[in-house]
């Protein structure tokens, strides 16, 4: 009965999740060729070795790591006080404020990028303001700065939502008791609020960090040639160089880098849950 009930799901997950993951490994070991599709099956570790040794790819991986780390920390710095402020409002306001945070999120993320292009482009609003006050135009589009603005803008809600949910579940009387016992607001935050919020904070950080590592669209649209991410490298190998084994080898390494820590974290005993 149970087997029958879950059979379609098992079939779907095997076909569309397990099999493709295996295929990445298979094709990472293939040899590029001028055929359709552009590879010949083999057991050649060339692409994997290349992916691990070529400094160009290392730049890709490290670039992704750098961009993900900076964006995640920036989201945390901006988002934590916002989440805390929302969590401390009354129930009525809380629902409304959460809806306000989520709404732009439903408008489509490419369209939110469109809005920023309108601001950042050479003839955009920012430069219009600058020239109105007599400052020379600056190029913002296709720079790291524009890319970071885009990433932080798009991923901020992912950090705020789990964090706010955890913060609002906190027992306010603990904070009040700490304050009553003479703790300053800063001490109350460090010793009571912050430790309680950690699970929500980590969930939010992961929700930003992981997708940004593989982010392709925002660096492509707002970033410059130096804003290299591994996502851009993989897409480039795939679409422009037509080198499927190389793209697969890079994808395989990224997959391992993302899945292994998560698996280990899952095995480790956990203190709190969201």
């Amino acid at each position: 009965m149970r087997t029958l009930f879950l059979a379609p799901l098992w079939a779907w997950l095997t076909l569309f999740v397990a099999a493709p993951a295996l295929l990445i490994a298979v094709i990472a070991l293939a040899i590029p060729a001028d055929t359709v599709p552009p590879f010949r099956l083999a057991l050649a570790p060339d692409a994997l070795i290349q992916a691990l040794t070529d400094s160009f790819y290392w730049h890709g991986f490290l670039g992704s790591l750098r961009i993900a780390a900076i964006s995640t920390l920036a989201c945390l710095a901006i988002g934590y006080p916002m989440a805390l402020a929302i969590a401390r409002t009354s129930a009525r306001w809380r629902g409304l404020l959460l809806a306000i945070v989520i709404l732009p999120f439903w408008s489509g993320f490419l369209l939110r990028i469109t809005a920023w292009i309108g601001i950042l482009r050479d003839e955009g609003y920012l430069n219009a303001i600058l020239s109105a006050v007599g400052i020379a135009k600056i190029q913002l589009m296709n720079t790291d700065a524009a890319m970071f603005i885009g990433i932080i803008y798009c991923y901020l809600p992912f950090l705020i939502l789990p964090l706010e949910s955890r913060l609002s579940s906190a027992d306010r009387s603990l904070e009040q008791a700490a304050a009553d016992l003479g703790a300053t607001p800063v001490r109350v935050f460090v010793h009571v609020t912050l430790p309680h919020s950690l699970p929500g904070m980590f969930a939010g950080l992961a929700l930003v960090f992981i997708p940004v590592t593989g982010e392709y669209v925002i660096p492509e649209l707002l970033g410059g040639p130096s804003s290299i991410t591994i996502g851009r490298v993989i897409a480039d190998e795939f679409f422009n160089n037509n080198d499927w084994p190389q793209a697969s080898a890079l994808a395989l390494i990224l997959l391992a880098a993302l899945v292994l820590p998560a698996t280990i974290a899952r095995r480790a005993p956990r203190g709190g849950r969201i």
Binding site: T14, L15, E215
Partner: peptide, 30 residues
């Protein structure tokens, strides 16, 4: 409890935690 619950949950959650790029590439290969 059902047979292969851990594997089931893992396969199910994979597209949730992996970047779109990997999902797209893997499915194209499939």
């Amino acid at each position: 409890r059902f047979h292969g619950r851990t594997l089931f949950a893992g396969l199910l959650a994979a597209p949730l935690v992996l970047p779109d790029l990997l999902i797209g590439l893997a499915l194209l290969l499939l």
